[in-house]
């Protein structure tokens, strides 16, 4: 299986996010291939959830579109399994703990392994609760990706020491979504990580322009972009693939130059 770390092997990483099944699973499959062609280092696929509390309106609406379009966890697994032979970059799922727990955490991770998903990001499982998933993830070789936030301060060392795959650095307070500027001292967060770990750090939340992506990649190992891409999907629907591909290519270039 492809390893998460491979995303960071060729310099700075650009990590796009899309919501699985938005607007449908066929489009999601084409988006995965197009984003890979455009140079994405790793791709995050959102498993849609009815109540995504870490998301702003853009991704909330994408989850609604996916669910009302009939996307299920099983459907998403099947689609990924069907395309895995053509995917060379690591794929990770981003979702909430209930879709995993309710599916059966062990069964969920087993299917991740079977379908070529190499990691999971679960924003509502913080460091203190990660026992809920960590042993099960390990048993199936699935990386449980940790997050740090601008409020983490004294927690950064403990989280970084046990982090796997890469560390997701949340750039700003609040939920996901485009921000005009990022005021957090992300460099300082990463400096604290570096005191105890050399795990790759990618920055997400609020990034939409090539300038912001370049800026964040300069102080870290990569940039994560979700809402800005999901907006393009929302705007063009099933015809979104070339538009997303263009956008991802521009973002990859900005990150590569950082």
């Amino acid at each position: 299986m492809i390893k998460i770390e491979e995303a960071f092997r060729n310099g700075k990483a650009f990590i796009p996010f899309i919501t699985g099944g938005d607007p449908d699973l066929d489009t999601t499959r084409e988006l995965l291939l197009a984003m890979q062609d455009a140079g994405a280092s790793l791709i995050e696929i959102g498993v849609p959830f009815s109540d995504p509390i870490a998301e702003g309106p853009v991704i909330q609406e994408a989850d609604n579109r996916a669910l009302s379009g009939g996307c299920t966890t099983d459907g998403l697994f099947d689609m990924v399994k069907g395309v895995r032979d053509r995917i060379r970059v690591p794929l990770v799922f981003m979702t909430y703990v209930n879709p995993i727990f309710s599916y059966g955490s062990d069964r969920f991770m087993e299917r991740c392994e079977e379908c070529g998903i190499c990691g999971v990001i679960v924003p509502d499982v913080p460091f203190e609760e990660k026992d809920e998933l960590s042993d099960i993830c390990r048993a199936h070789g699935i990386g449980l990706i940790s997050m740090i936030a601008p409020t983490s301060r004294n927690r950064i060392h403990a989280i970084a020491k046990e982090a796997e795959g890469f560390l997701y650095c949340v750039s700003s307070l609040g939920v996901t979504g485009v921000r005009r500027e990022i005021t957090t001292d992300v460099g300082e967060m990463i400096r604290l990580v570096r005191e105890v770990s050399d795990i790759p750090c990618a920055v997400g939340f609020g990034i939409s322009t090539p300038e912001q992506a370049g800026q964040m990649a300069k102080v870290s190992d990569g940039a994560i972009v979700g809402s800005a891409i999901v907006k393009i999907v929302a705007q063009y629907g099933k015809d979104c693939v070339p538009h997303v591909k263009d956008y991802v290519r521009r973002m990859c270039e900005a990150v590569a130059q950082a």
């Binding site: 509502d124 913080p126 460091f127 203190e128 997050m147 936030a149 409020t151 927690r155």
Partner: peptide, 9 residues
């Protein structure tokens, strides 16, 4: 305490 890292502190 199943909440986001941002709220943990």
């Amino acid at each position: 305490q199943y909440i986001t890292e941002t709220l943990m502190n």
